[in-house]
Design a protein around this nucleic acid. Structure first.
Lengths: 342, 342
DNA sequence: TTGAAAGCGCTAACAA
DNA sequence: TTGTTAGCGCTTTCAA
């Protein structure tokens, strides 16, 4: 009853050979008809396309990829797909990729170095380039990746590998100044994953900014960069005297606020909270979160563009000026989670 | 200065041939050493592995995939990656895949039929199976996909294609009963995308449930299944007399609540709002959203398991009982966005 | 403009 | 246990 083609083996997809046979041309002509139209007679090409369509032929990237490795595929590896931080990034990265004729594969590393390595091992050979968004890999491992495929890292600086990063220092300074301006003198920082490059930068900037302004600074954690991590942070906060806190990211900040509410601590009356990233949800949580905003949308676009540059200019040696990190500005979005010190 | 190996071409990655030459064995032996350890002398295998490591050799899935199509890759195509609805689904799907030795590729269709088709075209040949989560493709197109690769669809029923769906009817009934119990008699439904199968099911169930309970039912929309869509919905709601509304999904519901707030309509005092899906954020928005919850976590697991079943039992004809849709229960989570009619 | 033939990296029969 | 050989689907010289 099924609509099986006339070709013998029904289970296997048609190839250029099938098309060639039916169309009465050589396989190479079929190949050309698809890979470089124009290099083949219009009529012939027409016939080939018609036959191909009838047979349900599709060119196979895997076969096509073998000779030259061109698969028109890029990959972005994110630390945690469920972190809204990546939304805009992935979106914009995808758009940029598509506009240039590439398809973007999204790979989730589950905040795990092992998972990230495994996923890369499997994916890397399939793609022409890769964006590592907030990777948990070691610098050496990242350089190894970069040796296999054009690579761009995000939110991290690795020698000789092109990168796109937020200006964490600037953002953190704005946050601390904001809190200082509200009269807070004892601040705490809720640390993120130890393996996070961004966490290191943020904590350092926090320490420096507080120092310069003569404020007391304290580091709590590390906490998981999730709502749950924020819940633990809330617990930890109650045993400290800080009147304002800056969280590693918005997820932690939101989790912290929820935890504090449960513990009877009111935000911002009893404690001011600042997040990082301005993610989806940070404006409709209660209270709306004051946070350091990165231009998330540009992030993905920038990263993919740098990747495309590498793809187009394979001549350029790895350690060209190309790899100087692109610094994206950060600004403070003031909302309801911060207030004058009681 | 660079640490280039002794092999001539530095730009190209080593192959089994390189390893074979250095190790003094045949290429096929190298292949065996990796693809089926045990079928080769332990010492030989050891030597091969050592050489391979030194040379930086990695087996290429693309080469490996050619002969038999086995890439250990699965794909999940989602309508919109930034929709929190997919978080748990992707997470659990990934876990299930990894546990079975597969890597899961995540592909975003951007709520666009064209994008979905293009992405599938490129991805399908690379993967061994695919999960279509809330696809916007036509039934015919989905069947065509299923012909190329083992396929499981989610939140949709397509003849002859295995699927996993929420019990929309049951969930909607619960929602309507809940509202009726609160004294509401005039309800509205905020419709989602026309191409959405789930939207069709939900609207139908809404109409039936309201009818049976003798309530007035009205359909507004369609709206984009996003926060922005909800904002438009809020506008539309103000011109109607319903005192309670059920949204196509949580995103629309949350957007609606925000829009209503801006318009001076208070939820739930002036209007009760119910969502669908119980996504990330639905518990910390203001007010917390009453919503129909699907067992998101089981969703991904189920889907991938069905896929794996197909992969393991290639003998079973497509239209076996295997393709009967798996119905996952839905329950109502009552929170603050619904209240007794004023 | 088209065809013939070689080869991409790997696996799988078949022999040795 | 290992080597030889053919071939997966496609692209790409090289000739015609």
């Amino acid at each position: 009853m099924g609509e099986t083609g006339e070709t013998g083996s029904s289970s296997t997809r048609p190839t250029i050979y099938d098309v060639a046979r039916v169309a009465g041309v050589a396989p190479s002509t079929v190949s050309r008809a698809f890979s470089r139209p124009g290099r083949v007679n219009a009529d012939t090409a027409d016939r080939i396309r018609r036959v191909a369509h009838e047979l349900g032929y599709r060119t196979s990237p895997i076969g096509r990829g073998l000779p030259d490795g061109r698969t028109a595929l890029l990959a972005i590896v994110v630390a945690d797909l469920t972190n809204p931080f990546f939304f805009e990034i992935i979106r914009s990265a995808e758009k940029t990729a598509i506009d240039s004729g590439y398809t973007l594969l999204v790979v989730d590393a589950h905040e795990s170095r092992g998972a990230e390595r495994l996923a890369l091992e499997r994916t890397l050979p399939l793609v022409e380039g890769v964006v590592l968004a907030t990777s948990r890999l070691s610098d050496a491992a990242i350089r190894a990746v970069a040796k296999q495929r054009p690579t761009v890292v995000m939110n991290r600086v690795v020698t000789d590998v092109p990168s796109v990063v937020t200006d964490n220092a600037q953002g953190m300074r704005r946050a601390v100044e904001h809190l200082a301006g509200l009269g807070h003198t004892r601040l705490s920082y809720l640390a993120g994953p130890e393996a996070s490059w961004a966490d290191g930068m943020r904590w350092r900037a926090f320490r420096e900014a507080t120092q310069e302004l003569g404020l007391r600074a304290r580091r709590l954690g590390p906490f998981a960069p999730t709502l749950a991590g924020g819940l633990s942070a809330a617990q930890a906060l109650t045993t400290h005297t800080a009147t304002a806190t800056v969280a590693y990211n918005d997820l932690v900040a939101i989790g912290t606020m929820r935890g504090l509410t449960r513990l009877g601590v009111e935000v911002p009356r009893d404690l001011s909270v600042v997040g990082f990233d301005n993610i989806f949800g940070s404006d409709f949580c209660t209270p709306p979160l004051t946070t350091v905003a990165s231009p998330l949308r540009h992030f993905g676009t920038f990263a993919v563009q740098r990747l495309l540059n590498q793809l187009r200019a394979p001549s350029a040696a790895p350690s060209t000026g190309l790899s100087a990190p692109a610094l994206l500005p950060a600004k403070l979005v003031e909302r309801g989670s911060t207030a004058r010190r009681a």
